[in-house]
Design a protein around this nucleic acid. Structure first.
Lengths: 106, 106
DNA sequence: ACAATGTTTCTATATTTATGGAAATATAGA
DNA sequence: TCTATATTTCCATAAATATAGAAACATTGT
């Protein structure tokens, strides 16, 4: 993980609408949700939602796949874990910190 | 943790200079470093550094304490852990994810 | 081919954020 | 009190980001 990617990923979730989207997808699991469904749940206009989903995808924290007429968006758990590890790397001057463990990515 | 605080904290580290500062402080431990020392290590002009340190403090990810002529800045490990927990909360639709554990805060 | 539905791109505008020099404000030692 | 050092505030400018309507594009069922 390099710092530019980390900043890109953090920027992508450092915004209220996008953090809501991301947390929703994290909670929903690997299946994900179609864009329209996300917009409906969070009350975000289609074009605004599309803009935010692009930010999240571009940063790599969210994946997308087409399924018939729908585009499913889902959390990228590996990327999320990578980011969390990066933030806590070599922490606390070697004073016996627990290394971070987060979501399974099987 | 509410979403506004989380966005504030994420915004505070979603910037290259500030992420460098934060990671440095995370690695350095609870003792922290004086502002000038941080600026020297990371080659950041004093006024710019001051602006960024204020952002980090204001978000609560960094603490400061005065010690004679110096102001020591240090990572707020509890806040950091709180943020990481918030991001991974209720993740993966209950499919047996490990709950996150990060830095000790004793 | 046509209509219905889902999603994105284009566009303009408003808002927020980052930068660093110069001046101001602490703190402490002589 | 005078001086040196540490840090912050003020300021103007430059750059990046968020918003959402309208139009365009894609996919599927009839």
């Amino acid at each position: 993980m390099d710092i530019k990617s980390a900043v890109l990923q953090l920027s992508s979730i450092a915004q209220e609408a996008r953090l809501e989207i991301f947390r929703l997808l994290v909670q929903v699991g690997t299946e994900g949700l179609p864009a329209g469904n996300i917009g409906e749940r969070l009350q975000i206009p289609a074009s605004t939602l599309s803009f935010h989903l692009k930010e999240l995808s571009h940063a790599g924290l969210v994946n997308s796949r087409q399924a018939s007429r729908f585009i499913y968006y889902s959390a990228n758990y590996e990327a999320m874990n990578g980011l969390l590890v990066y933030l806590t790397e070599n922490c606390c001057a070697g004073e016996g910190c627990n290394p971070i463990t987060a979501c399974k990515t099987e």
